[in-house]
């Protein structure tokens, strides 16, 4: 017994849309680079949830393998992104993205 047999697929669709929109709102609202990173993670997770829901709905395991790859890419992205953030902080003593409006200083 799976939730997909009871809960309509549309509900998962709308849940993912809401989570994705919250992530977009976080990127637009906040100025702290770390919180913007976390909002990006939230958007990735909204997509993951939808992939798993459709994979379960269609009884096809390929969707879940895609989620697996997205997790690997997200881990790599976070590692490099946080390293860049450390460099930026070392140079500017701040994690505010509004300082980063020039390419060289």
């Amino acid at each position: 017994m799976s939730a997909i047999q009871i809960v309509p697929i549309e509900w998962y669709l709308f849940l993912s849309i809401v989570l994705f929109t919250i992530g977009v709102a976080g990127v637009l609202l906040r100025r702290n680079a770390i919180i913007i990173f976390m909002s990006i993670e939230l958007m990735l997770n909204a997509v993951n949830l939808l992939l798993v829901a459709f994979s379960s709905y269609l009884s096809d395991s390929k969707g879940q393998v895609f989620v697996f790859f997205i997790m690997a890419v997200a881990a790599a992205e976070v590692a490099v992104g946080l390293a860049i953030l450390m460099m930026v902080y070392r140079n500017t003593k701040s994690s505010d993205i509004n300082i980063l409006n020039k390419l060289k200083w």
Binding site: S2, A3, I4, N48, V52, S56, Q64, V67, F68, M71
Partner: peptide, 16 residues
């Protein structure tokens, strides 16, 4: 979200 994965019978992905 991991709870959602378990509800969707994706136990391995929930743990990962």
């Amino acid at each position: 979200i991991a709870g959602h994965y378990i509800l969707l019978n994706a136990q391995f992905l929930a743990v990962v």
